[in-house]
């Protein structure tokens, strides 16, 4: 077992799946030379340009052609260079990939994986920073995964590629190289739709996903140290389908819920988590279900000071924890 960055773990998963199943191929802009984040580095040399295919710069057709290829016996893994540039493919993802199985009464299916780097905190400005998970979590027929750790990235990407449904695989770009983690060399998968309890606690449940998991764990450690607040942290890992039972069981134990996400507050995925807790764990609550998210401004301004002002961070999360704990 070696310590790896997340981008290395993504590459390992792609490599292993291409080796394991010759139907798997990757396509996208610049993937032939490894892609702008180097997630596909070396794949063309090993598997040839037919299986690590540079495409014209046309997101709708990267996804549309993936759909077609999946109907004719292949398992495409499409890379969209940045989540901010996926919007031209929205129609293909939402109207086509997500609905094909349903609209054909189960006759056709569409086993594609769409990988894309998302998230802010890297001075990406308004077009290299967006969070897009809520758009797709809203759509029945899609699975949506948000990863921000090397271990999860490898195990969940393998599950995504093997899944018979269309899967959106969102990789937080700030987590690509910012830290390393033990990643087993051997084959393993993490089931889609299963959350992970990252920290045990008794005073409140903090539900999060993506890079905010790391920030929330830092905040939870800080408030434990200076105020003795015990926070249970749950990383959803998958936002669609999401692990309601894990969240509800925890909230029924702690009686308080704080939801942390990087996306804009309004209509963000955390709103769905909040609604579910309010509806299904109301009798157990002794405080308001609370959210910490980015305010409703386009994510994210380029200037470091502007970006820092907007985005959630461990200090802001710790402040939210203290406020809810005092309720």
């Amino acid at each position: 077992m070696a310590e790896k960055t997340m981008v290395e773990a993504v590459r390992d998963a792609l490599h292993d799946e291409m080796k394991r199943d010759e139907r798997v191929f990757v396509l996208g802009e610049d993937v032939g030379r490894g892609g702008v984040f180097r997630a596909t580095e070396g794949l063309r040399d090993e598997f040839g340009e037919d299986r690590c295919m540079d495409t014209p710069l046309a997101e709708a057709t990267i996804v549309g052609a993936s759909i077609g290829a999946s109907l004719n016996g292949l398992l495409p893994v499409a890379e969209i260079q940045f989540a901010d540039f996926i919007h031209p493919a929205f129609d293909q993802i939402v109207s086509e990939a997500a609905r094909l199985h349903y609209r054909s009464n189960g006759a056709w299916s569409c086993p594609i994986t769409v990988r894309t780097p998302y998230g802010a905190g890297v001075h990406g400005g308004p077009y290299h920073s967006q969070s897009i998970e809520a758009f797709y979590a809203h759509v029945p027929g899609l699975k949506v995964i948000c990863v921000a750790s090397p271990y999860d990235a490898k195990g969940l990407l393998k599950s995504a590629i093997r899944d018979p449904n269309p899967v959106m695989f969102l990789e937080h770009k700030k987590a690509y190289r910012s830290f390393r983690e033990e990643v087993p060399d051997e084959d393993y998968t993490i089931p889609i739709g299963v959350a992970e309890r990252k920290r045990e606690g008794s005073d409140m449940t903090l539900v999060t996903y993506g890079l905010m998991t790391r920030y929330s764990l830092e905040a939870a450690a800080a408030v434990q140290g200076d105020g003795g607040i015990s926070v249970e942290v749950i990383d959803l890992r998958t936002v669609s389908p999401w692990d309601k039972e894990c969240v509800l069981e925890s909230v029924r134990k702690t009686g308080k819920a704080l939801i942390v996400y990087e996306d804009n507050l309004t209509g963000g995925f955390g709103a769905e988590v909040a609604a579910t807790i309010a509806e299904d764990a109301f009798d157990f609550l002794d405080g308001p279900v609370t959210r910490i998210a980015s305010p409703d401004v386009p994510l994210a301004p380029y200037s470091g000071v502007l970006e820092e002002f907007i985005l959630p961070n461990p200090e802001k999360i710790a402040e939210g924890i203290r406020k809810l704990a005092a309720y």
Binding site: R51, T61, G64, A65, G68, L71, G73, L74, S95
Partner: peptide, 17 residues
């Protein structure tokens, strides 16, 4: 016209296979 890229993907698979 959303079906048009699908035809291209099917043809791509046909060629690759």
């Amino acid at each position: 016209a959303t079906q048009v890229p699908h035809a291209v993907g099917i043809a791509l698979a046909s060629k690759l296979r």
